[in-house]
């Protein structure tokens, strides 16, 4: 494992920790999109189908379990926890996320590395992850007061994508057979979606003002 990959995984983990901190400690999910969280839970469930079939490393298994458990518990908190769910900004979280799922599934059936159940589900999870942040970005745009933890959560999530691209570039040159066109193209699309957010996040940090996205 190279440094970019490890740093990418760690920022991904950090984003989850920041979100859980907000939900668990502050008992608030204000500014967090339930739609995005549900999509992530679906992404991990579809991608980690091989969890108990293919053993890669202890690190890999543990991280997969962490992402599965955290994504489903976040959805549970936002839907069921009696205090947390009251802070959910339902009126602004109106992105029709179900309409993302079907096109991703169709694309996975058409473009995959092999036409088997697991490979189609893997491609589906990659496509869905690329667009899963959209409801969250739309909600941020509609939120007048973006709190620090929410901004940091999205920032770490975006940083993870950037680091994964660097990891692929590194692996492409160091591992002769490392080719994954599907995850590369989807990963670049996913990262580009954060470009706008990054711009405003860095500007707010530089100018020391509160983060606000233009509508």
């Amino acid at each position: 494992m190279n440094a970019f990959r490890l740093a990418g995984d760690m920022t991904h983990l950090l984003s989850v920790v920041v979100l859980l901190l907000k939900i668990h400690t502050i008992k608030s999910c204000a500014g967090i999109s339930l739609k995005t969280q549900e999509l992530y839970a679906l992404v991990f469930a579809a991608r980690y189908l091989d969890l108990f079939i293919h053993f890669i490393s202890l690190y890999n298994t543990v991280m997969k379990l962490v992402f599965l458990a955290s994504s489903f518990s976040i959805v549970w908190y936002m839907r069921r926890h009696k205090i947390v769910r009251r802070t959910y900004d339902k009126d602004h979280d109106t992105f029709r996320h179900h309409f993302l799922v079907l096109p991703c599934l169709a694309l996975a059936l058409l473009i995959n590395e092999r036409f088997t159940f697991r490979e189609v589900m893997w491609a589906f999870s990659i496509y869905l992850e690329a667009v899963a942040i959209l409801p969250q970005l739309v909600l941020l745009q509609r939120t007048r007061n973006i709190d620090n933890l929410t901004g940091q959560y999205v920032f770490f999530l975006g940083a993870y994508r950037v680091l994964y691209i660097l990891n692929w570039i590194y692996r492409y040159f160091t591992e002769p057979h490392f080719v994954h066109w599907i995850s590369w193209v989807a990963g670049i699309v996913q990262t580009l979606l954060y470009a706008d957010f990054f711009y405003y996040y860095i500007m707010s940090w530089k100018n020391n003002v509160k983060l606000e996205l233009p509508a």
Partner: peptide
């Protein structure tokens, strides 16, 4: 034959 790498990423 195996052109794609194993899926060892998260």
């Amino acid at each position: 034959e195996c052109l794609t790498a194993p899926k060892d990423e998260l």
